[in-house]
Amino acid sequence: MGIAAERAAAAGRGASARRRKAAGDANLAGYLFISPWLIGFLLLTLWPIAQSFYLSFTEYSLLSDPAWTGTDNYAKIFAEDATFAKSLSVTFLFVLFSVPLKLFFSLLVAMALNRNMRGMNLYRTAVYFPSLIGGSIAVAALWRNMFGLDGYVNQVLAWFGIQGVGWISNPDTSLGTLILLNTWQFGSTMVIFLAGLKQIPQELYESAAVDGAGSVRKFVRITLPMLSPVMFFNLVLGVIGSFQTFTSAFIITKGGPVNSTYMYAMFLYEKAFKHYQMGYASALAWVLLVIVALLTVVNFAASRYWVFYESDGGKTR
């Protein structure tokens, strides 16, 4: 073996030792940074999740101890339970319409409000207000007044000679009305878009302007790619959150009329706390987890084609 080769090998050993040390440091730093979450997960979250998984194989009324029933709950969900199929399809419809609607609408408004103009503070607050009242009990009363049989919407329609329906109390329109309510409360999504827009360096727009780019081109070439991580976030979380939509159905329609707004989360809640079938509810929850997880995986897989991360040096993923 030549001296050069030996030297190279030694250097290699040194380098790999350095790399190992660097990797060790990086691991330490990484775990140190995520430790608040990790500790919380291990202390507070892991056990309840494991419990719910165990309970999904039991019959558990909450009022007495759980009894092991194997996979009975899952078998019943897929083989017999018509309500499962119904509430899942209601929820899918809800997600399918409300997620894109909310994304589109909130981006549009965020763009309109992303200016330095006198009074903009007030406009932003006004637009955000509906989202603040969230699940307040007043929302239910308010919504009934808007969309009731003799509510304001029908009064306006009457001016045009249109005979309105009971938007919330008609099984054909109730789900659509809840989707509308959900879209009306687009504030949180909009705020995230606003924060994202603010993070785009102005220089990019300035230099594009120097190159003579118009506003459409600026939007397509700069805003969209720079905003894509935030849009991706809103999409993923919109899907996860919409599948668990609960409050509006719970306080406004109680899932009715005739199950037309019987969202999955409401079905699950009633099973657990109203029908005293926590075991069955847990199984329902795990079925939902699998569905949502699969969709999220699809989302992440698709993201490499359209989400652009500045930190990855301009490459997508």
């Binding site: 009934r144 329906v165 009971g166 008609n170």
Partner: peptide, 13 residues
């Protein structure tokens, strides 16, 4: 449709 909108003890419904 009307019956489904009823809510007992609500002043309007």
């Amino acid at each position: 449709e009307k019956a489904a909108a009823f809510l007992e003890n609500d002043p309007k419904a």
